[in-house]
Nucleic acid binder design. Structure first.
Lengths: 217, 217
DNA sequence: CGTTTTCTTGAGATGTGTCAATCCTCGTGG
DNA sequence: CCACGAGGATTGACACATCTCAAGAAAACG
């Protein structure tokens, strides 16, 4: 662990900046310290799909591969903690614990990706939006202020377009469904980004997910 | 590795059989020896999405979790090689090499899942079908018989319904798009399952993917 | 303030889903 | 050997959710 300390260095990026282009040579791996970034894939004609959402503590880069497979884009001001790849890989060979931790994180990501696949393949636009709001709300719930009786308040860290790329929708559909949820009282909006969920259970009902427990473990 | 040999045992299943139900207690991990199985998720109202396709050599089960997160279904007669979970986990702690291999496999699965997310979120029905055919064709190409000049022949290991669950479509749409590809000469059919691709490049054009190299590494 | 970006809303087009009828293939039992 | 039935597959007609194109409104920013 001390060795890791020695070979790390920090890099900062502005919101909106593309940090890594798919196909780029990657000579480092990194971990998000602060801010939010996205992984996305783009087709020749411009259609793009987000395939990963990187929050603080998430890992970027694949040991044993030297070109990036996805675009990495900062959606907020971002600080990353980087390690040169070569030394990191050598460290992994020597200290199994690092690899074990990485395996755990990768398995979690795989589970998240599979949940996401269900969303992309089978959910309606309204369920998709509700699911995304629920994900963000749940993550922010711990940090957030007003957490009385199912009430959750947070700021959307994504633009409508980024949400659309996350959900496999157009930004117009995202906008319409958010308006619909607002009209139906599932959420309240101040400005375009500040969201209040008066009743978290109500929002969960809209996601289409199994309600009876069992989401984790 | 010899230790692994000692604690393994084999199990066989019939086509169509559900091997594991989501939520089941899992006291083993396993690896596919022969046949094909699927991982899928089902919503309360019956909508289902396949989230994994298990081919020979693929791994099932998550070290460090004791309930299954997905249904596992045999789509062909299936043979699996199982290891009791507890001993396997202990082995993993002692021999880092096993964990490293597992990490590699998990990272590959994650990449596949992300490719799949692009398909689910952004591709048209025709592109989805073409992509699936291309995936199967490429995998069988090595084994298959007629591999002259871009010509590939194979059997579909999935029903129309399973294909629909893979692609996030209805089986009617799958059927229609297959008929369309046949009418346009992209594929030929004998019976419902036996497919001939006269020109693999032509099929690749239909997938919407980047043609110029770069799919692997 | 202008300017630009982001977001909202409308009207119409279209791809995919839904419902329903029919067909094909194959295995089974009369 | 044939009739029957069951599961899988195809095809049609229509409905509807989402996309496309377009105009404005509302914030954000210099």
């Amino acid at each position: 662990m001390d060795e890791l300390e020695e070979m790390k260095y920090y890099r900062s990026f502005e919101a909106g900046q593309t940090i890594i282009w798919s196909g780029d040579k990657m000579d480092f791996v990194a971990s998000v310290v602060e801010g939010i970034a996205t992984l996305s894939q783009t087709m020749e004609d411009g259609r793009t799909q987000m395939v990963g959402l990187l929050l603080p503590s998430d890992f970027v880069g694949r040991p044993g591969r030297d070109t990036a497979a996805y675009d990495v884009i900062a959606t907020t001001p971002l600080v990353m903690c980087c390690f040169r790849k070569k030394p990191f890989e050598e460290l992994m060979l020597r200290t199994p614990h690092v690899g074990q931790r990485l395996l755990e994180m990768t398995l979690d990501e795989l589970d998240a990706a599979r949940e996401w696949m269900l969303l992309l393949g089978r959910k309606t636009a309204r369920e998709k939006i509700s699911s995304l709001l629920a994900i963000i709300a749940r993550r922010d719930a711990s940090i957030s202020i007003g957490t009385e009786a199912g009430r959750v308040v947070f700021d959307l860290p994504l633009t409508r377009e980024a949400m659309a790329d996350y959900l496999g929708l157009t930004l117009e559909t995202v906008s319409r469904q958010i308006s619909a949820l607002k009209k139906d009282g599932v959420i309240q909006l101040e400005g375009k980004r500040h969201v209040t969920v008066p009743d978290m259970d109500r929002l969960m009902d809209e996601t289409g997910d199994d309600t009876d427990g069992g989401i984790f473990v």
